[in-house]
Amino acid sequence: MDCAKWASKDINIKYERRDNRNGYKAGALKHGMMHNDIKQCNYLAIFDADFQPEPDYLQRTIPFLIHNPELALVQARWRFVNVNTCLLTRMQEMSLNYHFMAEQQSGSTRHAFFGFNGTAGVWRIAAMEEAGGWKDRTTVEDMDLAVRVGLLGWKFVFINELSMQCVQSFSQNVKSELPSQFKAFRFQQHRWSCGPANLFRKMTMEIIHNKRVKIWKKVYVIYSFFFLRKIIVHFFTFFFYCVILPTSVFLPEVKIFELVNYIRSFYHHHLKCHCQSKVIVCTHAHRSFYLVVFWVIFENVMAMHGTKGTFIGLFEGGRVNEWVVTKKSGEALKTELLPESRKPRYGFFERVNPKEMIMGIYILCCAYYDFAFGNAFLYVYLCMQATAFLISGVGFVGT
């Protein structure tokens, strides 16, 4: 094993496994922090099993923490090794590019709060301990810790690549892998939407009653970070684009464009920044620009699962603390020691997703009705959206 090889060179390295899954990832991190070796350290680097940092990753990140005592976290950007595997991985790359650029890079540049991604980051242990350490009350222990640390006044920094030349010689990105199977991607998205909603439920009163936090920071975290970005964004995307717009074809007295203006005026600042950021991301990733339409309608499909996960998180439904390990093909950590596994074969009916099929059929009916009786050419969008739902419904997404 690699650990044994480095240990033979007098490197202080250990490999351990728990005999249970209590608390899932948060439980494992809490268990690791109890070791005496950790108490002698000032910084903690975290990597998921499918992540590969560059050899000089610590040499590039630790100086930020050494020379900036108010800094708690250095977060690196992810780079994906299997982007071109299928259309599903291309869509995920575009979504995560939006997350890194519009939320984390912009937040770091403005010295504003942004969340920890759960991996590819280095923490100052003193900041973690001041905030209470890891908690396993939700499936987003990374966001939980980041919010508590940020509320105490600690600052975060996000490292992005400096130039294309830098990527060739040295990349501050960390190589990782995207799920290439639709079912695995759905489980991941459920956790990423359910966890923040559940954390919002559990932390709101805690934030309000925290006398150490300034009122403006409380408003920012509760309203902007949680309510708008983690709750409303799923509801708005799904219900407006997949329910209200299709249903409007049966109600000719409803002026859909006036409705859009009302909603835009209500969420003016957030929606404006949201749309501008997406355009910037798509323009920046010019090699994927032709996929913008596919990306938008696919995001609308996934908003259905985001909405479902958000409801479960807010009302603590039966799957609120469900943790399913995201299945990946192993491209990021493939070695000659591991035999190549066979790809599982699923029958047609095992691939069918009823929720997507129902939504696809409904939107398709709305498209046909608008084509026959409408005059707003809305059926063009509805046909594309219905096709996206139906393709996802029969499982022809991913590998």
Results as ranks from 00 to 15, higher is better:
34 M>C: 07
37 D>T: 13
38 I>H: 04
40 Q>N: 10
40 Q>E: 15
43 Y>T: 12
45 A>D: 04
46 I>P: 01
48 D>A: 01
52 Q>P: 00
53 P>Q: 02
53 P>M: 02
54 E>R: 12
54 E>A: 15
54 E>Q: 13
57 Y>V: 00
61 T>W: 01
62 I>C: 03
63 P>T: 02
65 L>P: 02
66 I>E: 15
69 P>E: 11
70 E>S: 15
72 A>R: 03
73 L>V: 11
73 L>E: 09
74 V>Y: 07
75 Q>R: 13
77 R>G: 09
79 R>W: 00
81 V>C: 15
83 V>K: 03
85 T>E: 14
86 C>V: 05
88 L>S: 10
88 L>W: 13
96 L>E: 14
101 M>T: 05
102 A>M: 05
102 A>Y: 07
106 S>Q: 12
106 S>P: 00
108 S>Q: 03
109 T>S: 12
109 T>E: 14
112 A>Q: 14
117 N>L: 09
118 G>A: 11
119 T>W: 05
122 V>Y: 01
122 V>N: 05
124 R>V: 02
125 I>C: 03
126 A>I: 08
127 A>R: 05
137 R>I: 14
140 V>S: 14
142 D>V: 06
144 D>A: 10
148 R>D: 03
148 R>P: 01
148 R>G: 02
149 V>I: 15
149 V>S: 04
149 V>E: 09
151 L>P: 04
152 L>E: 11
152 L>S: 10
153 G>Y: 12
157 V>K: 15
158 F>I: 08
